[in-house]
Simulated assay, not measured.
Amino acid sequence: MASRFTLPPELEREILETAALRYPEMIPPLLRICRRAQIWLEPLLFRVVDLSHEPQLLAAESKDPTFLQHAVRNVHASFENRPDAISRYNKLLWKCPGIINLSVDFNLDDIGAGALREMRLKKLAVTVPSVISTWYLAGCTDPLFQSITHLDLFQGPRKAKSEWRHWRGLARLPALTHLALSPTIAIDILADVVVECPRLTLMVVAMYSWDSLAVKASLTLRATDPRVVLILMASTYPIEWKLGALGGDDFWVRAETFIDRRRAGEIGSTCYLLDENATTQPLRLPINHRRT
């Protein structure tokens, strides 16, 4: 009888992990192949976690802290009007110091600073509160910002003007190369960011088609710096975030591609608005070479 052919465990693991990373939807059935496949692949199932979805939150809460520490790398959390949400998020985030990509749509003050400082965050998306908060007053000088390369700051309809003195710390962040601002923030500080943050390689003003007020507000901006892209996205933020967390071409990547095309002359040099809802060439915005 011919001997049964088996792959070396290292090669078998590499094949399964490659398939799981390329096709995340295949992870659950792959877990059922055998015990060793479950050990190898289950951490990949928790590499990207949206705590706003109760089943994912419950699944993460059921795991051992050691497992979470080595598995969880990307987390999105929204308040969702659940009275116990912040408390549950807090307990879980303490167990996930390996997170490198975090998105929260509530005040960072609601999360224990100690938990955040245990992480080495590379990407952070956060809602700027309508009331003054501790981290906002600190001007991004908190240690938790020191390793961040991509920072996305969102603010809804503003109740008060943003002042550059509160954001001056952006210019001193050693790793920051990519900055995204919602229009309500960009209107107040983009001109200062362009001048004070020479290390930035990309500045995005992110808008969504459903937010007509933001779109109108963006039209008052005068973009002249080649690193700036005003992008009107067709998809929702949760879709954008998950796309990036899974390694896809999210708005950061698409904005960089837009800049490359503009530098190559495929797009007019005075074009700063990438309208992803349009089927024609991106719209041009008025140019003003003076700081406003």
Rank of each mutant, 00 (worst) to 15 (best):
S3H: 12
P8W: 02
P9K: 00
E12I: 05
E17P: 05
T18W: 11
A19K: 01
E25P: 07
L30F: 06
I33W: 02
Q38W: 14
E42G: 10
D50N: 15
E54S: 13
E54F: 14
L58Y: 09
H70W: 13
A77N: 07
S78P: 03
N81A: 15
D84R: 04
I86E: 00
S87C: 12
L93K: 02
L93S: 06
W94H: 15
I111M: 08
E118H: 15
E118M: 15
M119Y: 03
K122L: 00
K123R: 13
T127L: 14
W135N: 10
L144T: 04
F145W: 06
L153M: 12
Q155D: 09
Q155G: 11
Q155Y: 06
G156A: 13
W167R: 10
R168V: 14
R168T: 15
G169M: 03
L170Q: 08
L173H: 06
L173E: 01
L173V: 03
S182M: 05
P183H: 00
C197R: 06
L202D: 08
L202P: 00
M203W: 04
V204G: 03
V204H: 07
K216V: 11
A223F: 08
T224E: 03
T224Y: 08
P226L: 01
Y237S: 14
P238K: 02
I239H: 15
G248P: 03
W252G: 04
V253M: 08
V253G: 00
R254G: 02
R254F: 02
E256R: 12
I259D: 09
I267N: 07
G268K: 10
S269P: 03
S269I: 12
L273V: 13
L283Y: 13
L283F: 08
R284T: 15
L285P: 02
R290M: 14
R290Q: 15
